[in-house]
Write a protein that binds this DNA or RNA. Sequence first.
DNA 1: AAAACGGGGGC
DNA 2: GCCCCAGTTTT
Length: 294
Amino acid sequence: MLQQTRAEVVIPYYQRFLERFPDAATLAQAKQADVLACWSGLGYYSRARNLQAAARAITASGGFPRDYHSLRALPGVGPYTAAAVSSIAFDQPCAVLDGNVLRVIARITNDGSDIALARTRAQFQRVADGLLAPECPGDFNQAMMELGATICLPRAPGCTSCPVARFCEACKAGTQGELPVKSGKLQPQTIRAEVVIVEKDSKILLHRRAARERRMAGFWDLPQPAELNGLHSVVTLGSFRHTITHHHYTLNVLAGAVPHIPRGFRWWRLDRMQDIPLSTIARKAIRLRHPRTN
DNA sequence: AAAACGGGGGC
DNA sequence: GCCCCAGTTTT
């Protein structure tokens, strides 16, 4: 859950998720749609699928992996997560390199190399490994991340209150504000789209996205006008914006009626929206008409 | 190596 | 509006 997601945002999801799926065996046995529903709103949904796949692998193998390489072999576990779990849970001497640590290392060493490059990350990994305190690797890693999250901030580095300012080459040189250097920003794209709310007896019409869809596979979605034969009584409810990575959507939300349920669609009760995986775009559109809906 | 993948929070 | 977040996988 913490991959590319702020800890404060994660906490309520984490608590609900662990209440629902308290251990690997429970998660392994669950239906994927229930796992996604519990994750719905947190984003990066492949993390949820990978976590369940990992739970199944762990259950099948009969034991939780305890070293970097076995952890790394689990689906959804990359270099960061393998290092974090092996060091924090199992005292293994593996330095983590997340966004915070990249920034801290770039500043401590006053290194203006592009952190988007693999070569730079490999270099920073060597620096972090060299700094790691082998007697308490978990504490060291958490301290590095916490330093980046609370003091060595992206925009406003708090050098005056920094406990390691006297070791920091960027602070000495006064370059902390320009570091780290990161290239490769994608061109933003603007996209207009329309969705339709067809409502009857406190239920709305949704369809399930195919399992092989690239994005939001298996999620429930609102219809687009072209998908509704015989759509009539159309009115505009309003519009809103939503950004997904570098795609800027402007959603126009319509309401209307159809003569019969189209193929692939079904009615879902408005008071049951929390039970299904639903994109935030769909939730925002539904909330335009029903402000208190989940 | 670059792009895709969600969503929200801070300024 | 832009940047970034306790990154990983796919192209």
